[in-house]
Design a binder for these strands. Structure first.
Lengths: 153, 153
DNA sequence: TCCCGATAATTTGACATCAAAACATCCCCT
DNA sequence: AGGGGATGTTTTGATGTCAAATTATCGGGA
């Protein structure tokens, strides 16, 4: 939303906040992206990171954690499997579920990569003081959670 | 980034802020997306909105404003043209440039749609007080701009 | 005038993304 | 035992997205 819209004070404030929120997210994402080795996408990284810190997960759990659709995860995990970074296995108990786990190669890969990305993001956010980072996180959390459905006021 | 990572205090704070920033952006985007008429994507909306509030633009200007690649805009604008919402015309002075403009249909369309989306976003951000919205915008702006390249400290 | 570098757009190939339809399985209920 | 609904995954079709290669055009300098 540019600066050319005429509306009420509250509307302008909300649109301004929205615009800057999106720009910040896109900018940080773009800068984090260039820190990734060529060939590894952001979603692939996020999936590997989840597996590293949570252990093997069902594909549906992965989709929920990454806020992505199930169909999407099918492709992302398939590409990771193709690259030898994860394994997929139908569970014996319920053959509908697919358990995704890191291979040794995948574990080494994300294990060395994650600290670098974490350091990179830490550097990005160092433009804010620790107190400001906390404030930003708190505000973003409330926006992310949204207004409860029953609070219609 | 889950809660399972062990790192320094500053690293954890930065990753937490990053996670919540991204979640907020994704959540608001998702909720704004459902408010769009089926068939119109977020990028298409953003392009039409820019044209409504800025007037006809070169395709390259549009790409810069939307923070998207040139190749991407070629496709997005082509789809809008196919739907009869914009026109594309090579400028006579310099035939490399393509001027994109709203058609009357496109103007009516975005003209009635934008206020609805603006109201929807205003509602989203009403979980924050005006003062909090300003604070969020200010913090996001600094994160979005990033650390100047010469400030290597 | 002609060549060459710069710039705008398009094309290409790979991946992401969703919604919806199709499959595969499971499990409850009769 | 069997039908039917629920659930996880996969497929399909359309769009978005980028980087890199290509094309078209322009402008300045030899």
């Amino acid at each position: 939303m540019g600066t050319h819209h005429q509306g009420s004070e509250t509307e302008i404030a909300a649109l301004d906040a929205y615009l800057k929120l999106m720009r910040a997210a896109e900018s940080v994402t773009a800068r984090a992206h260039v820190a990734l080795p060529p060939g590894l996408t952001l979603t692939q990284f996020a999936a590997l990171e989840a597996l590293l810190h949570c252990g093997p997960l069902f594909q549906s759990e992965l989709a929920t954690k990454l806020l992505k659709s199930g169909g999407n995860l099918t492709l992302v995990v398939a590409n990771l499997e193709r690259d030898g970074l994860v394994t997929r296995e139908r569970t014996a108990a319920d053959r509908r579920f697919v358990k995704v786990a890191l291979t040794p190669k995948g574990r080494r890969y994300i294990g060395t990569l994650f600290p670098k990305i974490a350091a990179s993001l830490t550097r990005e956010f160092s433009v804010l003081t620790p107190r400001e980072q906390t404030a930003l996180a708190r505000l973003c959390k409330r926006v992310g959670l949204g207004r409860p459905a029953y609070a219609t006021s």
